[in-house]
Design a protein around this nucleic acid. Sequence first.
DNA 1: TTGATATTAGGACACTTGTCCGAATTTCAA
DNA 2: TTGAAATTCGGACAAGTGTCCTAATATCAA
Lengths: 192, 192
Amino acid sequence: MRVKADKKGQSQRILMSAVNFISQHGYANVSLRDIAQDAGVVLSQLNYYFKNKEGLFVEVVKTVMRKYLVEIEELIQRGSTAKERVNDLISYFSSTLKDNPKTFRLLFDLSNMAMWSTPFRDLLNSLFDDLARLIERHILPLCDKDSRLQNYSPNAIARMLFGAMFGVSIQTLLNDEEDRLPEAMAAIGAIL
Amino acid sequence: MRVKADKKGQSQRILMSAVNFISQHGYANVSLRDIAQDAGVVLSQLNYYFKNKEGLFVEVVKTVMRKYLVEIEELIQRGSTAKERVNDLISYFSSTLKDNPKTFRLLFDLSNMAMWSTPFRDLLNSLFDDLARLIERHILPLCDKDSRLQNYSPNAIARMLFGAMFGVSIQTLLNDEEDRLPEAMAAIGAIL
DNA sequence: TTGATATTAGGACACTTGTCCGAATTTCAA
DNA sequence: TTGAAATTCGGACAAGTGTCCTAATATCAA
Protein backbone atom coordinates (compact mmCIF):
# COMPACT_ATOMS: atom_id res chain seq x y z
CA MET A 1 0.00 0.00 0.00
CA ARG A 2 1.20 3.46 -0.84
CA VAL A 3 1.41 6.56 1.29
CA LYS A 4 -2.06 7.27 -0.02
CA ALA A 5 -2.06 11.03 0.24
CA ASP A 6 -3.45 10.98 -3.25
CA LYS A 7 -7.13 10.44 -2.87
CA LYS A 8 -7.80 12.36 -6.01
CA GLY A 9 -5.40 10.52 -8.24
CA GLN A 10 -2.24 11.96 -9.63
CA SER A 11 -3.71 13.47 -12.75
CA GLN A 12 -6.08 15.60 -10.70
CA ARG A 13 -3.34 16.75 -8.37
CA ILE A 14 -1.21 17.69 -11.35
CA LEU A 15 -4.07 19.63 -12.84
CA MET A 16 -4.75 21.51 -9.62
CA SER A 17 -1.11 22.38 -9.11
CA ALA A 18 -0.95 23.54 -12.70
CA VAL A 19 -3.96 25.78 -12.22
CA ASN A 20 -2.48 27.33 -9.12
CA PHE A 21 1.02 27.80 -10.40
CA ILE A 22 0.14 29.05 -13.83
CA SER A 23 -2.49 31.49 -12.63
CA GLN A 24 0.02 32.76 -10.10
CA HIS A 25 3.15 33.09 -12.21
CA GLY A 26 2.01 32.84 -15.80
CA TYR A 27 2.37 30.03 -18.30
CA ALA A 28 5.70 31.25 -19.65
CA ASN A 29 7.22 31.52 -16.19
CA VAL A 30 6.24 28.09 -14.94
CA SER A 31 8.19 24.95 -15.77
CA LEU A 32 6.84 21.44 -15.77
CA ARG A 33 9.27 20.73 -12.94
CA ASP A 34 7.67 23.42 -10.82
CA ILE A 35 4.28 21.85 -11.28
CA ALA A 36 5.53 18.32 -10.71
CA GLN A 37 7.22 19.32 -7.48
CA ASP A 38 4.18 21.18 -6.21
CA ALA A 39 1.97 18.22 -7.02
CA GLY A 40 4.38 15.83 -5.34
CA VAL A 41 4.80 13.90 -8.52
CA VAL A 42 7.65 12.88 -10.75
CA LEU A 43 8.28 14.97 -13.85
CA SER A 44 7.55 12.25 -16.35
CA GLN A 45 4.04 11.86 -15.02
CA LEU A 46 3.06 15.13 -16.61
CA ASN A 47 3.86 13.68 -20.00
CA TYR A 48 2.10 10.47 -19.11
CA TYR A 49 -1.23 12.09 -18.30
CA PHE A 50 -1.00 15.18 -20.48
CA LYS A 51 0.91 14.75 -23.65
CA ASN A 52 2.94 17.91 -23.36
CA LYS A 53 3.00 21.34 -21.78
CA GLU A 54 0.54 22.76 -24.23
CA GLY A 55 -1.84 19.88 -23.64
CA LEU A 56 -1.66 20.44 -19.91
CA PHE A 57 -2.42 24.12 -20.28
CA VAL A 58 -5.36 23.40 -22.53
CA GLU A 59 -6.79 21.18 -19.83
CA VAL A 60 -6.12 23.86 -17.22
CA VAL A 61 -7.97 26.44 -19.25
CA LYS A 62 -10.90 24.17 -19.98
CA THR A 63 -11.25 23.34 -16.31
CA VAL A 64 -11.28 26.94 -15.17
CA MET A 65 -13.45 28.10 -18.05
CA ARG A 66 -16.13 25.57 -17.24
CA LYS A 67 -16.48 26.76 -13.67
CA TYR A 68 -16.36 30.36 -14.82
CA LEU A 69 -19.12 29.99 -17.38
CA VAL A 70 -21.41 28.04 -15.06
CA GLU A 71 -21.15 30.71 -12.38
CA ILE A 72 -21.91 33.52 -14.80
CA GLU A 73 -24.77 31.70 -16.45
CA GLU A 74 -26.43 31.22 -13.09
CA LEU A 75 -25.77 34.73 -11.83
CA ILE A 76 -26.89 36.51 -14.95
CA GLN A 77 -30.42 35.19 -14.64
CA ARG A 78 -31.09 36.38 -11.10
CA GLY A 79 -32.18 39.96 -11.70
CA SER A 80 -35.45 40.80 -13.40
CA THR A 81 -34.42 43.89 -15.35
CA ALA A 82 -31.58 44.52 -17.75
CA LYS A 83 -29.99 47.00 -15.40
CA GLU A 84 -30.11 44.58 -12.49
CA ARG A 85 -28.52 41.84 -14.52
CA VAL A 86 -25.76 44.04 -15.85
CA ASN A 87 -25.02 45.20 -12.35
CA ASP A 88 -24.93 41.62 -11.10
CA LEU A 89 -22.41 40.85 -13.78
CA ILE A 90 -20.38 43.90 -12.91
CA SER A 91 -20.45 43.01 -9.23
CA TYR A 92 -19.24 39.54 -10.06
CA PHE A 93 -16.32 40.94 -12.03
CA SER A 94 -15.49 43.41 -9.29
CA SER A 95 -15.57 40.98 -6.39
CA THR A 96 -13.74 38.25 -8.24
CA LEU A 97 -11.13 40.78 -9.25
CA LYS A 98 -10.70 41.74 -5.63
CA ASP A 99 -10.93 38.46 -3.79
CA ASN A 100 -9.84 35.88 -6.30
CA PRO A 101 -7.96 37.41 -9.22
CA LYS A 102 -6.39 34.07 -10.12
CA THR A 103 -9.09 33.32 -12.63
CA PHE A 104 -8.56 36.62 -14.39
CA ARG A 105 -4.83 36.24 -14.44
CA LEU A 106 -5.30 32.93 -16.18
CA LEU A 107 -7.74 34.45 -18.63
CA PHE A 108 -5.36 37.26 -19.53
CA ASP A 109 -2.49 34.89 -19.81
CA LEU A 110 -4.54 32.83 -22.21
CA SER A 111 -5.39 35.95 -24.18
CA ASN A 112 -1.72 36.58 -24.70
CA MET A 113 -0.95 33.05 -25.79
CA ALA A 114 -3.93 33.20 -28.12
CA MET A 115 -2.18 36.04 -29.85
CA TRP A 116 0.58 33.73 -31.06
CA SER A 117 -0.90 30.25 -31.09
CA THR A 118 -3.84 29.02 -33.15
CA PRO A 119 -5.14 26.29 -30.80
CA PHE A 120 -5.24 28.74 -27.92
CA ARG A 121 -6.87 31.32 -30.11
CA ASP A 122 -9.68 28.93 -30.93
CA LEU A 123 -10.10 28.12 -27.27
CA LEU A 124 -10.35 31.76 -26.29
CA ASN A 125 -12.66 32.70 -29.11
CA SER A 126 -15.11 30.04 -28.09
CA LEU A 127 -15.05 31.43 -24.57
CA PHE A 128 -15.67 34.95 -25.85
CA ASP A 129 -18.47 33.64 -28.01
CA ASP A 130 -20.12 31.98 -25.04
CA LEU A 131 -19.85 35.07 -22.88
CA ALA A 132 -21.19 37.35 -25.59
CA ARG A 133 -24.04 34.95 -26.17
CA LEU A 134 -24.91 35.00 -22.49
CA ILE A 135 -25.16 38.77 -22.48
CA GLU A 136 -27.02 38.73 -25.76
CA ARG A 137 -29.65 36.33 -24.53
CA HIS A 138 -30.17 37.22 -20.91
CA ILE A 139 -29.60 40.95 -20.78
CA LEU A 140 -30.22 42.68 -24.06
CA PRO A 141 -33.76 41.41 -24.67
CA LEU A 142 -34.80 43.15 -21.45
CA CYS A 143 -33.51 46.53 -22.61
CA ASP A 144 -35.61 49.50 -23.49
CA LYS A 145 -36.35 49.62 -27.17
CA ASP A 146 -35.66 53.32 -27.28
CA SER A 147 -32.11 53.05 -26.10
CA ARG A 148 -29.61 54.97 -28.19
CA LEU A 149 -27.83 51.66 -28.66
CA GLN A 150 -30.60 50.22 -30.78
CA ASN A 151 -28.75 51.21 -33.93
CA TYR A 152 -26.31 48.44 -33.22
CA SER A 153 -26.77 44.70 -33.40
CA PRO A 154 -27.19 42.80 -30.12
CA ASN A 155 -24.01 40.89 -30.76
CA ALA A 156 -22.02 44.07 -31.23
CA ILE A 157 -23.44 45.56 -28.05
CA ALA A 158 -22.74 42.40 -26.12
CA ARG A 159 -19.15 42.36 -27.30
CA MET A 160 -18.76 46.01 -26.50
CA LEU A 161 -20.09 45.50 -22.97
CA PHE A 162 -17.89 42.50 -22.38
CA GLY A 163 -14.96 44.35 -23.88
CA ALA A 164 -15.47 47.17 -21.44
CA MET A 165 -15.49 44.80 -18.46
CA PHE A 166 -12.48 43.01 -19.82
CA GLY A 167 -10.57 46.21 -20.44
CA VAL A 168 -11.32 47.67 -17.05
CA SER A 169 -10.41 44.34 -15.44
CA ILE A 170 -6.97 44.46 -16.98
CA GLN A 171 -6.40 47.97 -15.74
CA THR A 172 -7.53 46.91 -12.30
CA LEU A 173 -5.30 43.90 -12.16
CA LEU A 174 -2.33 45.98 -13.23
CA ASN A 175 -2.90 48.92 -10.97
CA ASP A 176 -3.89 48.29 -7.40
CA GLU A 177 -3.34 51.87 -6.31
CA GLU A 178 -5.75 53.49 -8.73
CA ASP A 179 -8.92 53.44 -6.67
CA ARG A 180 -11.02 54.91 -9.47
CA LEU A 181 -11.13 51.57 -11.19
CA PRO A 182 -14.01 50.02 -9.24
CA GLU A 183 -15.90 53.17 -10.12
CA ALA A 184 -14.96 52.72 -13.77
CA MET A 185 -16.31 49.19 -13.60
CA ALA A 186 -19.53 50.44 -12.06
CA ALA A 187 -19.87 53.09 -14.75
CA ILE A 188 -20.30 50.34 -17.31
CA GLY A 189 -23.74 49.83 -15.83
CA ALA A 190 -24.73 53.26 -17.04
CA ILE A 191 -24.14 52.33 -20.64
CA LEU A 192 -27.43 50.55 -21.06
CA MET B 1 35.74 52.18 -44.65
CA ARG B 2 33.03 49.69 -43.82
CA VAL B 3 30.25 48.26 -45.96
CA LYS B 4 28.27 51.21 -44.72
CA ALA B 5 24.78 49.81 -44.97
CA ASP B 6 24.29 51.08 -41.46
CA LYS B 7 23.58 54.72 -41.79
CA LYS B 8 21.45 54.66 -38.69
CA GLY B 9 24.01 53.08 -36.46
CA GLN B 10 23.80 49.61 -35.08
CA SER B 11 21.82 50.44 -31.99
CA GLN B 12 19.00 51.87 -34.07
CA ARG B 13 18.95 48.89 -36.39
CA ILE B 14 18.81 46.57 -33.42
CA LEU B 15 15.96 48.55 -31.96
CA MET B 16 13.98 48.50 -35.19
CA SER B 17 14.49 44.78 -35.68
CA ALA B 18 13.43 44.23 -32.12
CA VAL B 19 10.26 46.23 -32.63
CA ASN B 20 9.39 44.25 -35.74
CA PHE B 21 10.20 40.84 -34.42
CA ILE B 22 8.67 41.23 -31.00
CA SER B 23 5.48 42.79 -32.26
CA GLN B 24 5.20 39.99 -34.76
CA HIS B 25 6.02 36.97 -32.64
CA GLY B 26 5.80 38.13 -29.05
CA TYR B 27 8.53 38.83 -26.54
CA ALA B 28 8.58 35.30 -25.17
CA ASN B 29 8.90 33.76 -28.61
CA VAL B 30 11.76 35.89 -29.84
CA SER B 31 15.39 35.21 -28.98
CA LEU B 32 18.17 37.74 -28.97
CA ARG B 33 19.75 35.71 -31.75
CA ASP B 34 16.69 36.23 -33.93
CA ILE B 35 16.91 39.96 -33.48
CA ALA B 36 20.66 40.06 -34.00
CA GLN B 37 20.38 38.11 -37.21
CA ASP B 38 17.57 40.26 -38.53
CA ALA B 39 19.52 43.39 -37.71
CA GLY B 40 22.63 41.99 -39.35
CA VAL B 41 24.54 42.32 -36.13
CA VAL B 42 26.50 40.05 -33.87
CA LEU B 43 24.75 38.73 -30.79
CA SER B 44 26.99 40.40 -28.28
CA GLN B 45 26.08 43.82 -29.65
CA LEU B 46 22.66 43.54 -28.09
CA ASN B 47 24.27 43.32 -24.68
CA TYR B 48 26.63 46.11 -25.55
CA TYR B 49 23.92 48.63 -26.40
CA PHE B 50 21.11 47.33 -24.24
CA LYS B 51 22.17 45.71 -21.06
CA ASN B 52 19.95 42.66 -21.37
CA LYS B 53 16.81 41.36 -23.00
CA GLU B 54 14.55 43.14 -20.58
CA GLY B 55 16.40 46.41 -21.14
CA LEU B 56 15.98 46.04 -24.87
CA PHE B 57 12.28 45.43 -24.55
CA VAL B 58 11.87 48.44 -22.32
CA GLU B 59 13.45 50.57 -25.01
CA VAL B 60 11.24 48.97 -27.63
CA VAL B 61 8.14 49.77 -25.65
CA LYS B 62 9.19 53.33 -24.93
CA THR B 63 9.89 53.94 -28.60
CA VAL B 64 6.54 52.67 -29.76
CA MET B 65 4.65 54.30 -26.90
CA ARG B 66 6.06 57.68 -27.73
CA LYS B 67 4.88 57.60 -31.32
CA TYR B 68 1.55 56.20 -30.20
CA LEU B 69 0.89 58.93 -27.67
CA VAL B 70 1.90 61.73 -29.99
CA GLU B 71 -0.46 60.51 -32.69
CA ILE B 72 -3.37 60.24 -30.30
CA GLU B 73 -2.73 63.57 -28.69
CA GLU B 74 -2.82 65.26 -32.06
CA LEU B 75 -5.84 63.38 -33.33
CA ILE B 76 -7.94 63.83 -30.24
CA GLN B 77 -7.99 67.59 -30.58
CA ARG B 78 -9.30 67.74 -34.13
CA GLY B 79 -13.04 67.48 -33.57
CA SER B 80 -15.01 70.25 -31.93
CA THR B 81 -17.56 68.21 -29.99
CA ALA B 82 -17.15 65.34 -27.55
CA LYS B 83 -18.86 62.96 -29.91
CA GLU B 84 -16.63 63.91 -32.79
CA ARG B 85 -13.52 63.44 -30.73
CA VAL B 86 -14.60 60.08 -29.40
CA ASN B 87 -15.38 58.95 -32.89
CA ASP B 88 -12.00 60.12 -34.10
CA LEU B 89 -10.40 58.07 -31.38
CA ILE B 90 -12.51 55.08 -32.27
CA SER B 91 -11.66 55.44 -35.94
CA TYR B 92 -8.01 55.55 -35.06
CA PHE B 93 -8.28 52.35 -33.07
CA SER B 94 -10.27 50.66 -35.83
CA SER B 95 -8.01 51.57 -38.70
CA THR B 96 -4.81 50.86 -36.81
CA LEU B 97 -6.26 47.52 -35.80
CA LYS B 98 -6.97 46.76 -39.40
CA ASP B 99 -3.97 48.13 -41.23
CA ASN B 100 -1.18 48.06 -38.71
CA PRO B 101 -1.97 45.78 -35.78
CA LYS B 102 1.69 45.52 -34.84
CA THR B 103 1.41 48.32 -32.33
CA PHE B 104 -1.50 46.66 -30.60
CA ARG B 105 0.19 43.31 -30.50
CA LEU B 106 3.07 44.94 -28.75
CA LEU B 107 0.76 46.71 -26.33
CA PHE B 108 -1.02 43.49 -25.43
CA ASP B 109 2.22 41.64 -25.10
CA LEU B 110 3.38 44.31 -22.72
CA SER B 111 0.15 44.00 -20.76
CA ASN B 112 0.85 40.36 -20.22
CA MET B 113 4.40 40.91 -19.09
CA ALA B 114 3.18 43.65 -16.79
CA MET B 115 1.13 41.01 -15.06
CA TRP B 116 4.25 39.28 -13.80
CA SER B 117 6.98 41.90 -13.76
CA THR B 118 7.05 45.10 -11.72
CA PRO B 119 9.16 47.28 -14.06
CA PHE B 120 6.88 46.48 -16.96
CA ARG B 121 3.87 47.09 -14.81
CA ASP B 122 5.08 50.57 -14.00
CA LEU B 123 5.73 51.23 -17.66
CA LEU B 124 2.26 50.17 -18.68
CA ASN B 125 0.52 52.01 -15.87
CA SER B 126 2.15 55.23 -16.90
CA LEU B 127 0.90 54.67 -20.43
CA PHE B 128 -2.61 53.98 -19.19
CA ASP B 129 -2.41 57.09 -17.06
CA ASP B 130 -1.43 59.20 -20.03
CA LEU B 131 -4.19 57.83 -22.22
CA ALA B 132 -6.82 58.28 -19.55
CA ARG B 133 -5.61 61.80 -18.97
CA LEU B 134 -5.92 62.57 -22.67
CA ILE B 135 -9.54 61.46 -22.71
CA GLU B 136 -10.21 63.21 -19.45
CA ARG B 137 -8.89 66.53 -20.69
CA HIS B 138 -9.87 66.67 -24.32
CA ILE B 139 -13.14 64.81 -24.48
CA LEU B 140 -15.01 64.78 -21.22
CA PRO B 141 -15.09 68.56 -20.65
CA LEU B 142 -17.05 68.88 -23.88
CA CYS B 143 -19.76 66.48 -22.74
CA ASP B 144 -23.33 67.38 -21.88
CA LYS B 145 -23.75 68.05 -18.23
CA ASP B 146 -26.98 66.10 -18.16
CA SER B 147 -25.41 62.86 -19.30
CA ARG B 148 -26.35 59.86 -17.16
CA LEU B 149 -22.61 59.39 -16.68
CA GLN B 150 -22.28 62.52 -14.57
CA ASN B 151 -22.59 60.46 -11.41
CA TYR B 152 -19.10 59.16 -12.07
CA SER B 153 -15.79 60.94 -11.88
CA PRO B 154 -14.12 61.96 -15.13
CA ASN B 155 -11.20 59.69 -14.42
CA ALA B 156 -13.48 56.71 -13.97
CA ILE B 157 -15.33 57.48 -17.18
CA ALA B 158 -12.10 57.93 -19.07
CA ARG B 159 -10.80 54.62 -17.85
CA MET B 160 -14.05 52.93 -18.68
CA LEU B 161 -14.00 54.32 -22.21
CA PHE B 162 -10.42 53.34 -22.75
CA GLY B 163 -11.13 49.94 -21.23
CA ALA B 164 -13.91 49.40 -23.71
CA MET B 165 -11.67 50.22 -26.65
CA PHE B 166 -8.94 48.08 -25.25
CA GLY B 167 -11.27 45.14 -24.63
CA VAL B 168 -12.85 45.31 -28.05
CA SER B 169 -9.40 45.63 -29.61
CA ILE B 170 -8.30 42.40 -28.04
CA GLN B 171 -11.37 40.60 -29.31
CA THR B 172 -10.74 42.02 -32.76
CA LEU B 173 -7.13 41.00 -32.84
CA LEU B 174 -8.04 37.50 -31.76
CA ASN B 175 -10.95 36.96 -34.04
CA ASP B 176 -10.69 38.04 -37.64
CA GLU B 177 -13.83 36.24 -38.72
CA GLU B 178 -16.23 37.96 -36.33
CA ASP B 179 -17.26 40.93 -38.43
CA ARG B 180 -19.41 42.41 -35.68
CA LEU B 181 -16.35 43.71 -33.93
CA PRO B 182 -15.91 46.93 -35.91
CA GLU B 183 -19.53 47.57 -35.08
CA ALA B 184 -18.82 46.90 -31.42
CA MET B 185 -16.02 49.40 -31.58
CA ALA B 186 -18.30 51.95 -33.16
CA ALA B 187 -20.93 51.34 -30.49
CA ILE B 188 -18.57 52.74 -27.91
CA GLY B 189 -19.27 56.12 -29.43
CA ALA B 190 -22.87 55.84 -28.27
CA ILE B 191 -21.82 55.64 -24.65
CA LEU B 192 -21.33 59.35 -24.25
C1' DT C 1 51.01 59.55 -36.82
C1' DT C 2 49.91 58.12 -32.34
C1' DG C 3 47.37 56.49 -28.67
C1' DA C 4 43.27 56.14 -26.02
C1' DT C 5 38.54 55.12 -26.47
C1' DA C 6 34.50 53.18 -28.62
C1' DT C 7 32.80 49.67 -31.19
C1' DT C 8 32.57 45.09 -33.39
C1' DA C 9 33.35 40.33 -33.55
C1' DG C 10 33.34 35.48 -32.34
C1' DG C 11 32.85 32.13 -29.25
C1' DA C 12 32.33 29.86 -24.80
C1' DC C 13 29.75 29.21 -20.64
C1' DA C 14 26.34 27.71 -17.41
C1' DC C 15 21.81 26.90 -17.07
C1' DT C 16 17.00 25.71 -17.97
C1' DT C 17 13.77 23.77 -20.71
C1' DG C 18 10.44 20.06 -22.65
C1' DT C 19 10.59 15.48 -24.08
C1' DC C 20 11.45 10.75 -24.01
C1' DC C 21 12.92 6.01 -22.61
C1' DG C 22 13.44 1.72 -19.97
C1' DA C 23 12.84 -0.43 -15.85
C1' DA C 24 10.41 -1.05 -11.39
C1' DT C 25 6.14 -1.27 -9.18
C1' DT C 26 1.27 -1.50 -8.49
C1' DT C 27 -3.37 -2.84 -9.85
C1' DC C 28 -6.82 -5.92 -10.73
C1' DA C 29 -9.35 -9.29 -13.47
C1' DA C 30 -9.15 -14.37 -14.51
C1' DT D 1 -2.12 -16.95 -7.34
C1' DT D 2 -0.94 -15.45 -11.78
C1' DG D 3 -0.03 -12.54 -15.48
C1' DA D 4 -1.06 -8.72 -18.34
C1' DA D 5 -1.98 -3.87 -18.25
C1' DA D 6 -1.65 0.49 -16.02
C1' DT D 7 1.01 3.41 -13.48
C1' DT D 8 5.13 5.27 -11.23
C1' DC D 9 9.84 6.31 -11.13
C1' DG D 10 14.48 8.08 -12.06
C1' DG D 11 17.39 9.67 -15.17
C1' DA D 12 19.25 11.04 -19.60
C1' DC D 13 19.09 13.74 -23.72
C1' DA D 14 19.35 17.41 -27.13
C1' DA D 15 18.22 21.93 -28.01
C1' DG D 16 17.93 26.62 -27.00
C1' DT D 17 18.56 30.41 -23.95
C1' DG D 18 20.71 34.90 -22.02
C1' DT D 19 24.99 36.45 -20.51
C1' DC D 20 29.72 37.29 -20.43
C1' DC D 21 34.73 37.52 -21.80
C1' DT D 22 38.65 38.50 -24.66
C1' DA D 23 40.66 39.88 -28.79
C1' DA D 24 40.40 42.45 -33.14
C1' DT D 25 39.15 46.59 -35.38
C1' DA D 26 37.67 51.23 -36.17
C1' DT D 27 37.26 56.02 -34.66
C1' DC D 28 39.04 60.35 -33.86
C1' DA D 29 41.19 63.93 -30.96
C1' DA D 30 46.04 65.47 -29.73
